[in-house]
């Protein structure tokens, strides 16, 4: 009972903060946090796939598909935002199926290599299909997001949309992780053969985890497209793909909040360094230190600190009775 209360309290505090941010944050932080939420969706959506032991280094490709599809549907065909967002996510899922289905035979690093190659393929298609995507000129004139016919023209409105999308995504993913499905994913990730001998259809479950990730990456991409309102093929390249992966590892793989903490921490990390040419250097050092000294990710930091304190007090010299 005590535990639940603590969790609940923590969540309530965070929710209130998130709801109130536009009141005291100003337009700039509203903008930054909307992007942070997008990153949280991306990071969390990669988790099921990673849990199954699939090393996906190409998640940004699906974000790109979601972004371009939603933007083009809304821009060229005047499709309402809700539908274009869903359309983008569904196309990302479909492409995920097409790529995931045949590559399920591939394990570990081979699968990782397919996803690396896939990022480049999607980037090149976005770059070369000029009549549709405007290629390297960048796709502009993307309408702002709207809900039930109401355009969210302010940053604050768009921020709340991002918040809702993130919470919905997290809720779905959390529910799934704590269902039988999540159990199966974990068992697949830990030992393929064991799960198979228990009669689990590994291929189907891996594919499901992968496609689920693609769907939510598509959602994140769709929101990004209507928020930034300018799409440029190199944005969804290898850098973003590795960032999504890194959020998971820096945050920690051990718990559902890992990718969330990783995405929030790394997305905000660069803010204090803005304007400094050393931003990326600090960023990479923080990344490296986390991997080396917190193998379980940032979520293990409180425990590590607690251990450290315990160790200090335990090893403190005790006064000798002889003195």
């Amino acid at each position: 009972m005590h535990r639940r209360l603590g969790v609940l309290l923590g969540l309530v505090v965070l929710a209130v903060l998130a709801l109130l941010l536009p009141q005291f944050g100003g337009d700039y932080y509203v903008h930054i946090f909307a992007l942070v939420f997008t990153n949280v969706i991306l990071a969390a959506s990669l988790r099921p796939s990673l849990t199954c032991g699939q090393l996906n280094i190409g998640h940004s490709a699906f974000m790109s598909i979601g972004a371009y599809t939603s933007a083009l549907l809304a821009k060229n065909l005047a499709v309402p935002f809700e539908i274009s967002l869903l359309g983008g996510a569904l196309l990302a899922t479909a492409v995920g199926w097409a790529i995931g289905y045949p590559s399920l035979r591939l394990r570990g690093v081979y699968f990782a290599m397919v996803t690396v190659a896939f990022v480049e393929v999607i980037r090149l298609i976005a770059q070369l299909w000029v009549p549709l995507t405007r290629g390297m000129s960048g796709l502009s004139g993307i309408p702002k997001p709207s809900v039930l016919g109401m355009t969210l023209s302010t940053r604050t409105g768009q921020y709340y949309l991002a918040l809702v999308l993130m919470l919905a995504t997290l809720l779905v993913l959390w529910k799934l992780e704590h269902s039988r499905l999540g159990l199966i994913w974990r068992s697949i990730g830990m030992a393929d053969h064991l799960a198979q001998s228990l009669g689990v259809n590994i291929a189907r479950h891996k594919l499901l985890a992968f496609m689920l990730g693609c769907f939510f990456a598509g959602i994140a991409g769709g929101f990004y497209a209507h928020f930034i309102r300018f799409l440029f093929p190199p944005e969804f390249g290898f850098l973003m793909a590795t960032n999504i992966l890194v959020y998971n590892y820096v945050g920690g793989r051990g718990h559902f909040v890992g990718p969330i903490v990783g995405a929030v921490f790394l997305s905000l990390l660069s803010e204090p360094f803005r304007g400094s040419p050393y931003e990326t250097i600090f960023f990479s050092i923080a990344m490296l230190l986390t991997i080396l000294f917190l193998p379980g990710g940032l979520i293990t930091l409180p425990r590590k600190l607690a251990e450290l304190r315990w160790w200090r007090t335990a090893s403190a010299p005790t006064p000798s009775p002889a003195a």
Binding site: H2, R3, R4, L5, G6, V7, L9, G10, L11, V13, L14, V257, V261, I299, P302, R303
Partner: peptide, 9 residues
């Protein structure tokens, strides 16, 4: 629970 609260804080 404490870990979660600590994170929230």
């Amino acid at each position: 629970a404490p870990r979660c609260v600590r994170w929230a804080a």
